[in-house]
Design a protein around this nucleic acid. Sequence first.
DNA 1: ACTTGACGACTACGCCCGTAATCGATAGCT
DNA 2: AGCTATCGATTACGGGCGTAGTCGTCAAGT
Lengths: 121, 121
Amino acid sequence: MERIPEAEWQVMEILWAESPMGAQDVAERLAPATGWSLATVKTLLGRLLAKGALAHDEEGRRYLYRPAVAREACVAGESRRLVDRLFGGRATPLVAHLADTGQLSDADIAELAKLVKELGK
Amino acid sequence: MERIPEAEWQVMEILWAESPMGAQDVAERLAPATGWSLATVKTLLGRLLAKGALAHDEEGRRYLYRPAVAREACVAGESRRLVDRLFGGRATPLVAHLADTGQLSDADIAELAKLVKELGK
DNA sequence: ACTTGACGACTACGCCCGTAATCGATAGCT
DNA sequence: AGCTATCGATTACGGGCGTAGTCGTCAAGT
């Protein structure tokens, strides 16, 4: 699975949330958050098409874009890379780390407890 | 805190594990895993010095390098970035995801259970 | 003193990424 | 039939990163 860089990721998020969609529409939804011009968005769409992360249907003389890879799969790749690089491939130290650095609220911990209980079954 | 790219990270790992150390020594430890030439390692050391991630003591006419930033702090930054980007800043979904994708062994889950119990106290 | 070797500094260069303008074709309006 | 707006494709360009060669300097050996 191809690596998807930051800017392209944001385009994917739009299309994972709703698709298919034309370039114009994608650009409109990104504009508030990013300020990117339509031209920029088109470039990103093109690159994503080229690397197979998006597919397109032709509607008249324009494309309707939709994801060709599942968000789940991409997230899996990214998080695995991080865990490998930072924690020697072991997930537990990551959680311990998040806890240590105060990135887990009480609600998070409660939720984790439930999750872990579920997993242990 | 400056962002530390992949190749430079590997240099940091060496020095986090043992320091201070000369360029030659760093290169020798990296060689088996990376195959990088001494010149490449020197470049990376220079860049890390420039961005303040390393400090150096002069020993005769050469430098002894040592980390100027804690590994903990860098790891915190990286993992926060990932969690923000992929999981909307919430850590629990990350754990759920690791579980779903089978990246947690039974041992991991047991360990997590213990950790969570500890955190919940 | 002279050469040799090792050091850090500087330079190089191709690729990827973020950002965008421009181009050629075409659909639609007038 | 001609103009205009719009589409995707192509090209651009600065900066960062991965990888490495070269240069000026100085220490050490002979």
